[in-house]
Nucleic acid binder design. Sequence first.
RNA 1: CGGGGCGUAGCGCAGUCUGGUAGCGCACUUGCUUCGGGAGCAAGGGGUCGGAGGUUCAAAUCCUCUCGCCCCGACCA
Length: 566
Amino acid sequence: MRMTRLHAPTLKETPKDAEVASHQLLVRGGFIRKLAAGIYDYLPLANRVLHKIERIVREELDAVGCQEVRLPMVQPAEIWEESGRWGFYGPELLRLKDRRGGEFCLGPTHEEVIVDLVRRDVRSWRALPLNLYQIQTKFRDEIRPRAGLMRGREFLMKDAYSFDVSEAAALESYDQMYAAYERIFARCGLDFRAVEADSGAIGGSRSHEFQVLAETGEDAMVACTHCGYAANIEQAEVPAPAAGEPASVPSVETVATPGKRSIEDVSAFLGLPAAKLVKTLIVEADDELYAVLLRGDHELNEIKLRKHLGAAVVSLADEKRVKQQTNAPIGFAGPVGLTGVKAIVADHAVAGLDGGVTGANLVDAHLANVQAGRDYQATFADLRFAQDGDACPRCSGELRAFRGIEVGHVFYLGTKYSDAMRCMFLDEEGKDTAMVMGCYGIGISRIMAAAIEQHHDDNGIRWPIALAPYTVAILPLQMNKDDVVQAAERLYETLRGAGVDVLLDDRKERAGSKFNDAELIGSPIIIAIGGRGLANGEVEVKLRATGEKRDVAIDQVSAFVAEHLR
RNA sequence: CGGGGCGUAGCGCAGUCUGGUAGCGCACUUGCUUCGGGAGCAAGGGGUCGGAGGUUCAAAUCCUCUCGCCCCGACCA
């Protein structure tokens, strides 16, 4: 491609509405433009990157027997009502009406459509397993789109769905997809971790996320330093600490804590570390009130609490309700003598506290030397978020905290959708049986952003070779010198003939502009041709990834490029 | 949805407090010079100041309403 023909409007200045590196560089490099919040145009460079990602995905999925389909983006409400998600999905589902008033939505995901497709035509165990996928634009009306392509409302996604005869067979499909995903992300040049995850709104029981490690990532996770355990922080288990010898704790004592409501305030006021305090949260779970006890330095994981209580929704009770029901003012609530709650549940770590400080259920007072079991009764469970330094739930190692960008997610769904939508087959005994499903997503457009988050410097993008829109950029440095122009043209034709994705910067720009744009756009190999080097029969080859420069004889360049791209 | 901020040329901004000629840098067009890390000189083109209503002799500027966008919190590929 010639730069004079390429529609890649580069910018010198960083657009003010872009904050993260990938967003800034994609806009500056002329890869994307914004149409509306969370909705972007992909320009030719971005489109090339997306095609390269898609190609890797297709090759790996086809290799494990998946088949590509293309499903409608506009979906009728009926199938969503069948699965029960029309009511459940909420405002993130963009709903529309056709001219007759019929209700539709823009597909945020395609479980309903694919189940409807499969149940029509698949009747026999002989047709299974079946794994269908598509690469398509999805729309989710996110509350707050942000960070460019990292969280858009419209985005490109690969979604796959597996159908099997049994749970065992479905788990095999799951493992096969898991392995394919590892190959895909590795080929994309990404540094990633697969972590255990909560299965969230899509439903199901077994689930892994593929997280690209990046400080700007929205997700927090922990991984063991010793074994392979890694999990999203929402999911990460915290083992109960081994019970020690019960210490003898002096009896409860009331201490005055005027105006000290928060853990920080009380901790500073009493000169005690937060780990010696107990925080008491009054939580509303399906209209019942519970007191939830956590160590002062720990955070409540609402997902764990919800599962523990078997509740559909949990939220912090509002101030009025807390006062009314428990007589405990906000900030001074405690478990001792607490009334008006259905039960007291405590995180394991609270049991290990030999005498903690809790609220006294009185204004401006706390209790010291409070002992679970002696001074109040509670049930114990794993209720908090894991933290850096926690013990590994699988081995004797320790957990480290990471941040990441979720680029893929695999779910074991079981028969959630096939039951709800009657997706059945006849097994070998002629018995009508629900298919066992899995579903598997990859954020194609998000990979493009994640790759940049991981591979960039102050000058621009450093594309992994597999994703680069053009792997080689040729820069004739003086357009007024015929020998320079001709050498560049010859090299351009040679590399093109060899099937290399090559960009020739034939603009009448000065050397500085060409170098800067080439580095911004991020071609892995930048070849500078100037009169100075040409006099010795050499050109300068610069590797974008490392910044390494070397002079290469002009008749060796082609071989050098081929070698490097291999 | 709650909190904070911003809408003036393609991009980045000044002007708004204190009403009176719409301005700067980059980009763009033309000419000459320059040519290995974002050149110089000269001449140009480009604006319903987000939108609507109001106050006023006069509104980018004051008032009311509205739309859009960004950032921080609960959702997800």
